[in-house]
Design a protein around this nucleic acid. Structure first.
Lengths: 307, 307
DNA sequence: CCCGTCCACAACTGTTGGTTGTGGTTCTTC
DNA sequence: GAAGAACCACAACCAACAGTTGTGGACGGG
């Protein structure tokens, strides 16, 4: 990278604080390991070869990833560690906005796999992560020792169907409309708070929600929905779903009442990380509560609050 | 990574084909460099510390990136190098579909910055890249020595406006409707084939397309549009734009005629890379020509063809 | 043709990543 | 409570490597 930017081995060496010969040896060794020539040497400096051009962006990325890896554990001011269920749901969008507003604050977004809110809270208590976006099922039992939570984002549900589904043409549907329809939400891990949420949702409106089968990924779900006239799924307005342009899936709002998934931010009151305070401020600023629309949330959902 | 998966230093050592002591030294050195403890050693194996948990995913990513870097230049069967203008336009979606269909074929998607179709063709001729998605302005002059092109994707234009724009409520607009409106497309590099395309489009329908200013990124464009009642932009149906959920931008189809951007695939006839043949096959299979709708493309656009 | 510029090779050295041998700690077992 | 097993760390050693300085070959310009 230094050579391509400086054009000369000796300039690159100066920038790196080593000798020209050391640069020569480094590159010769790299080329030997890769088995291809990266630079064509002339008496007027060095030029990237075809393979060098292909390799360079990967080299840059490698250094970026390394820097992030080090930043994630840097003693003193390490990156802010946030847990989200996955990178498509509403809280992930919140985090993207936060990152846009504060690009200087290093984020380390992680996903504690197959875990429920209790595990996340334990991780916050131990300091393994700084914050988590979760639905809190039993606040009074779980929040102790300075672990705090605030309900920050209600994501209204949408019905996801293929073009041939019976409800595909509807502008909106009510929960009652869904009774008797096959609603398939794969990948729900039993025992987690989201499993509890969908259980409560199904019970409240008499729905049948199929949770069978392992999660083969969103792509597989979209595949199934696109072809089926009987199968539908539930997603959230804030959930970022992407599908091939020829798929023609429909996202139909659910209304009267609108079931909302109650995402909370959970953090530790005594955590001194400056990024955490910034995140809470930013979320507070972005919050807009729609108390006008009729919504439904589980009984155990926390009351709305500012983080 | 090996230790966390095997739980014991000695098991990890066996897997790596080195001695237990070497593993011990490696990890001790890594911890010294990072300045934090990654593993807590007990007499019943090793457990990740808090920092170790944070570091592990970065370590995995580092190895993945390294593997991709090596694969990009691996002699014999290196990754397939494709040039696209950016990762949001239609051809990039084509590539995502291709990757979904052929996950085994390693892709190296690159962007030759600020370059026009001639540079891309030269890169293909030299072997720097295997294929490029470009609009070909003067086929008869540019395509020689086995360099071949086929028009593979016509992306219909859409008007992009904020909610307060005069045309925001329209179901569709015609090019004539756009006369006199401010249409802003930042980031067009003069002298490129896309600059030529927008010049021709503006001339054909008497539009005024503002190309001023450097490109501050899509985010900035979306910001400007969201707030403005006079400014609009043009995008493509296949272009993948993402904006914050509270933005409420509108994408309005342009009809009668529909201007389409004529993306071609360019490649070298004699390039033996097996992935290239697969890509051409896949694109051929995905192609669906809509000859029914009235469309407009520049005079110089190639005739439609199968790659 | 000479000279300057640029990169590579040679010889040398300190550091590193591996080896084997051994010892300390911790849990289990009798 | 002592013996044993399992596990990880330290010590000594060695080969390989990444750096150093010194030097030489290739190329292009005046």
């Amino acid at each position: 990278m230094a050579v391509t930017e400086e054009r000369y081995f000796s300039e690159a060496a100066a920038r790196l604080g080593i000798s020209q010969q050391a640069v020569s040896k480094r590159i010769a060794m790299l080329e030997k390991d890769l088995g291809v020539a990266l630079l064509s040497r002339t008496s007027r400096g060095a030029q990237l070869t075809v393979d060098g051009q292909a390799f360079l962006p990967h080299a840059r990325k490698l250094l970026r990833v390394e820097a992030r890896a080090v930043a994630a554990v840097r003693p003193g001011r390490r990156a802010l560690r946030i847990d989200v269920l996955n990178h498509r749901i509403g809280p992930a969008a919140l985090l993207r906005n936060f990152h846009r507003a504060h690009p200087d604050i290093e984020l380390d977004v992680v996903t504690l796999i197959d875990t429920d809110v209790d595990t996340a809270i334990a991780a916050i208590r131990s300091g393994a992560i700084d914050a988590s976006f979760r639905a809190v099922t039993a606040p009074e039992q779980q929040l102790r020792d300075g672990v705090t939570a605030a309900r920050v984002l209600d994501d209204p549900h949408e019905l996801l169907t293929g073009p041939t589904h019976q409800l595909a043409a509807a502008r909106a549907v009510t929960p009652a409309d869904l009774v008797g329809h096959r609603i398939w939400i794969p990948g729900i891990v039993p025992g987690t708070e989201w499993a509890a949420y969908y259980d409560d949702l199904a019970a409240a409106f008499g729905l049948t929600i199929e949770r069978v089968g392992p999660n083969f990924g969103t792509d597989h779900l979209l595949d199934m929905l696109a072809d089926s006239s009987t199968l539908a799924s539930l997603t959230g307005e804030q959930v970022r779903l992407l599908w091939p342009a020829d798929y023609d899936l429909r996202r139909i709002p659910v209304r009267e009442p609108t079931p909302v998934y109650p995402h909370s931010l959970i953090w530790h009151r005594d955590n001194p990380h400056p990024g955490l305070a910034a995140l809470r401020n930013c979320i507070r600023a972005m919050q807009r509560h729609h108390h006008d629309a009729k919504t439904w949330a589980p009984k155990w959902a926390m009351p709305h609050a500012s983080p």
